[in-house]
Design a protein around this nucleic acid. Structure first.
Lengths: 131, 131
DNA sequence: CTTGGTGCAAAGTCTTTGCAAATCA
DNA sequence: TGATTTGCAAAGACTTTGCACCAAG
């Protein structure tokens, strides 16, 4: 089994994702990290993100139809989904997760659910107001 | 307002998606269409898919973490989601949609839901059996 | 006819990979 | 020290665009 080293680059990325606690794109991550580590390569971001995905420390999301986001995993007790505003692109927590009941129904039919994601988009309160 | 022509290429793509009635990737679409129209360019597929999305005749999905799929829209009465098997990559219909109740809750908080998608993946009955 | 669509090739994006040098353990 | 990770540059994969020609309305 391969060993995962704890490099400065990886620590910074992980800390960033922890403190953001919201989904971030590769570019957002890169821009932030560059300010602390000016010489970091984008490929290092990609490689560390892959590594963190393998280590199950982060999740991957498609929150709108073209961008990929990554977010720190919760204490496994907290289960979170997100909603994105099509106007301001801000993300909001989804207050509840309606999948579990469905999972139950599906597992009775023999399908083993491993992962699920929900994507909801629309217009947030604030943007709706300013229209 | 721009006019949308009904070209042979577009008709073939639309018919293909209608008959498949499951999400297809650009490559799947291309491979199928080429057998009927050997000279078609992949860019024509992309452009027609964009056009069909604009016309609201098809939907775009990310059903696994890297591929994009397109599927014909239902008679607007039928509202469908899909489940994908991580083993055989087959897709199955999701029997019900649990989003509407959430939408309601969200709209009471001022968020206007425009779109939603659900992605569930796991192991289907058949693949689980063969393990 | 007139305008939008097509095929082709080239250009853009985003992501991955090869490699020598650097760094962690 | 020994092996993984880094930065850089180059290669890949996927998607978009420019343009001359074609075809739908």
């Amino acid at each position: 089994m391969e060993t995962k080293r704890n490099t400065k680059q990886k620590q910074i990325i992980l800390t960033l994702l922890k403190e953001a606690d919201k989904p971030m794109s590769i570019n957002e991550i890169y821009t932030q990290v560059v300010s602390q580590l000016p010489k970091i390569a984008k490929s290092t971001i990609y490689r560390n993100i892959d590594s963190l995905l393998q280590q199950n420390l982060i999740d991957k999301y498609h929150l709108n139809d073209s961008e990929v986001f990554y977010r720190i995993k919760e204490n496994s007790m907290e289960h979170k989904h997100f909603v994105i505003c099509n106007e301001c692109k801000k993300m909001f927590d989804l207050p509840l997760c309606p999948i579990h009941e469905i999972e139950h129904a599906m597992e009775q039919e023999g399908f083993i659910v491993e992962e699920h994601q929900i994507q909801i988009s629309g217009i947030c309160k604030n943007c709706a107001k300013n229209k």
